[in-house]
């Protein structure tokens, strides 16, 4: 990693990182984000993460970035998994155990079918 010495350099790094996060020019990419704060991990998010990783590998899914994030504050519904795709609204799945995780990979990530009943409710 290069040292950032000026405001301009920082802005460059920022813009590049932003573009990557927004998956600019990568229409087929998917970002899967698992909440891996202590509360998430306590609810089993570590296993969820592993299951997703395993499922992605097993099914040879490409162009997917599996990431972790911190706690968004909604402990009640952990583990939480976000599926983010360019030009599509973000989807948050709640209480994602290993079984659900594998199905999310299969249905949502691979087949683009949103699993309605596992999505965060209107609260």
């Amino acid at each position: 990693m290069a040292v950032i010495n000026t405001m301009e350099e920082l802005k460059k790094v920022r813009d590049k990182a932003k573009a990557a996060l927004n998956m600019e020019g990568e229409a087929n990419k998917t970002r899967i984000v698992v909440g891996l704060g202590t509360c998430g991990i306590a609810s089993g998010a570590g296993h969820t993460m592993k299951a997703i990783e395993d499922e992605l590998k097993k099914r040879n899914v490409e162009n997917v970035e599996l990431e972790l994030t911190g706690c968004i504050g909604f402990c009640e519904f952990e583990p939480l998994v976000d599926i983010i795709r360019p030009n599509q609204p973000k989807v948050t799945y709640i209480k994602v155990d290993e079984e659900k995780a594998r199905q999310i990979v299969e249905k949502h990530v691979i087949n683009n079918e949103i699993i309605d009943e596992w999505i965060v409710p209107n609260i």
Binding site: G70, I72, G73, F74, E117
Partner: peptide
């Protein structure tokens, strides 16, 4: 969605009724 479910957690009133400064990035970035 058809059953009144939200898409993302950031769309819920739990989240939208908040003003997140200190927690601005929590749960959103790696």
């Amino acid at each position: 969605n058809s059953d009144g479910r939200m898409r993302a957690i950031t769309d819920t009133s739990f989240y939208k009724n908040q003003t997140r400064i200190a927690l601005r990035n929590c749960g959103l970035i790696n």
